[in-house]
């Protein structure tokens, strides 16, 4: 195991289920909340249009429910985070308090963005997701332990296998999910490639 302080090997906590498929990034964070030069405050806007009506009164939505308050693990369906490349989407989810997402599948850029900010985005099959969501709905206080090395999500009730892309797993476990330092290292080769490729001066 890496001794890099940035390494992410496990996530523990209660979970929050978000049933439904094809939840796109416009639903996760509507475009009007992108009008900002920082990511701060985005946690309050996550799923804004689904959680509040036009007058600002709360609607029925898992993210509004007291029983799921403080959850660290989000459980979603198929093709979650499809749509735009806005990192605001995983940023908003993270700033709401989520530290890991388990879903049937993810939009590709969304999954990459999750990794870049240190959020494991793991997958499991439809039946497993369904069972997990029901389990949490019936017992919101249930604690889970996501073990990235072993690729398991366990609780007192059950333990299931989850999948994660090898690149994301390596980066999270090694603490290199913030790619900048790693990329800065190969300066000489970068310069070589720059020299041999056409430029636009």
């Amino acid at each position: 195991m890496s001794n890099n302080p940035a390494a992410i090997t496990a996530v523990q906590g209660t979970a929050i289920p978000l049933p439904g498929n094809d939840v796109d990034t416009d639903r996760i964070i509507p475009a009007r909340y992108l009008r900002s030069v920082t990511f701060e405050g985005l946690g309050a806007e996550v799923f804004k249009d689904e959680r509040f009506n036009d007058e600002g009164s709360p609607k029925s939505h898992p993210f509004n429910e007291e029983k799921y308050a403080g959850a660290a693990i989000l459980i979603v369906g198929r093709n979650f985070g499809c749509g735009s490349s806005r990192e605001h989407a995983p940023q908003a989810i993270m700033r709401f308090g989520i530290k890991a997402i388990i879903g049937e599948s993810f939009g590709e850029i969304f999954a990459g963005n999750c990794t870049s900010i240190g959020i494991p985005a793991c997958t499991a099959d439809e039946q497993t997701i369904d069972e997990l969501q029901k389990l949490v709905q019936n017992n919101p206080q249930l604690n889970f332990d996501l073990d990235l090395e072993a690729q398991t999500l366990s609780s007192e009730e059950k333990s299931v296998a989850v999948d994660i892309s090898p690149a994301a797993k390596t980066a999270l476990l090694a603490g290199t999910w913030n790619t900048l330092d790693e990329l800065l290292q190969n300066e000489a080769v970068i310069e070589e490639v720059h020299q041999r490729l056409p430029s636009f001066v």
Binding site: S116, N178, L180, L183, H194
Partner: peptide
């Protein structure tokens, strides 16, 4: 490729991306 903001940072600083 469409990328997220952390990757925009990477490209600005290094002209490279970590990619599969």
């Amino acid at each position: 490729f469409g990328i997220g903001t952390s990757q925009v940072r990477d490209v600005l600083a290094t002209q490279t991306l970590a990619f599969e």
